[in-house]
């Protein structure tokens, strides 16, 4: 028989009286537990998507130089966050010792460092925007002649083909029309010579060929994406060695980017950094409250449980970045 009917009544000390501090901390830890699940799912999604894209054409995941990811910027940002975590710890310690003045200072420093992180992130986002590395707006490079590539040409790639036209036009439109005699030149020029000069610039040469193919209705999205991708790769390669070989730097392409798995990369990049950024903004608000209280001189030691929890959260956001950084910038 299982019997648990009559147990001796417990003494008071077996059940400690609940304290709101302990409960608050527990609630925070539980919340962070759910956050761990959140970022686990997010990072798992990223890793699954990333490691399942070994393309049949051998094209793997975009490498950092293709996506203009600068590991130094990421590292700098990691430093900023780490420093701000230190500041928050100092603030908690200072408040614990009753020194609300130095706690306030430390808090504002932490907030400034966090805001600095966001500033750097904004700079990075701006770079992605400049390079048109935006999800859904990148030309995809699929294996030549494959069904995926054919499907891409029949519809999904057409908006991208549309979107590169202004860039092509800006790169070589004028020369293109002059060479083909579609436009009368003010100063008579030799078309052959002009074509020769276009051919010497890889970007212009590619744009010229694409414009020609577009005019003949021969350009397909996959063809255009391949030539944009290959040209940008060769420009990138040439520019890497330009200084050594004493050549001038080639101009970057003015068209939107084409990149194998580029859209998936951009989706993951923006989801990971964006959701982390949202957490960071919330953290800034959470830290901003005691910091503001400190400025008006109302930060009291009884805010310590709140500040401890806020610090926990801040450290967690910091930790998440420490995991995201190598996965996104270095891997």
């Amino acid at each position: 028989m299982i019997s648990h009917a009559e147990c001796p009544p417990p003494t008071e000390e077996t059940i400690p009286a609940p304290s709101s501090l302990a409960m608050g901390q527990m609630g925070m830890w539980l919340f962070l537990g759910t956050e761990v699940m959140f970022f686990t799912a997010l990072l798992a999604t990223y890793l699954i998507l990333r490691f399942s894209v070994a393309g049949p054409d051998g094209s793997g995941w975009p490498n950092p130089s293709q996506t203009h990811m600068n590991a130094w910027i990421g590292l700098g940002n990691t430093g900023l966050l780490l420093l701000s975590s230190v500041m928050v710890s100092l603030a908690v310690r200072a408040l614990g010792q009753g020194s609300d003045g130095s706690a306030t200072k430390a808090l504002w420093l932490a907030i400034a460092l966090g805001a600095g992180f966001l500033g750097v992130k904004a700079y990075e986002y701006h770079g992605k925007y400049e390079h048109r590395l935006l999800p859904g707006r990148i030309g995809e490079v699929f294996p030549e002649g494959s069904t995926i590539s054919r499907r891409y040409d029949e519809g999904p790639g057409l908006p991208w083909l549309e979107s590169i036209k202004p860039g092509l036009e800006a790169t070589v439109g004028h020369e293109y029309r002059l060479i083909l005699g579609k436009e009368k030149a003010a100063v008579p020029a030799n078309p052959a010579q002009m074509l020769d000069s276009v051919r010497r610039n890889p970007g212009k040469s590619m744009a010229y060929d694409l414009l020609l193919a577009l005019d003949k209705s021969e350009a397909t999205p996959s063809m255009a994406a391949r030539s944009v991708f290959q040209t940008s790769e060769s420009i990138r390669f040439a520019n890497q060695h330009a200084d050594k070989e004493d050549r001038h730097q080639e101009d970057d392409l003015k068209t939107p980017t084409a990149l194998p798995h580029g859209n998936l990369w951009a989706s993951c990049y923006f989801a990971l950094t964006g959701l982390h950024g949202v957490h960071l903004v919330i953290g800034l608000v959470v830290l901003g409250i005691p910091a503001t209280l400190g400025v008006v001189g109302r930060l009291r030691p009884d805010s310590l449980p709140y500040l401890t929890n806020a610090a926990l959260y801040w450290h967690f956001v910091d930790l998440v970045w420490i995991i995201i950084f190598p996965l996104l910038y270095l891997l």
């Binding site: 859904g136 990148i138 995809e140 590539s149 891409y152 519809g155 999904p156 790639g157 798995h261 859209n263």
Partner: peptide, 14 residues
């Protein structure tokens, strides 16, 4: 390669 719905099609996908 996206998905196609008659004359409609989505983005490139991946």
């Amino acid at each position: 390669g996206g998905a196609q719905f008659g004359a409609w099609s989505t983005g490139a996908g991946g």
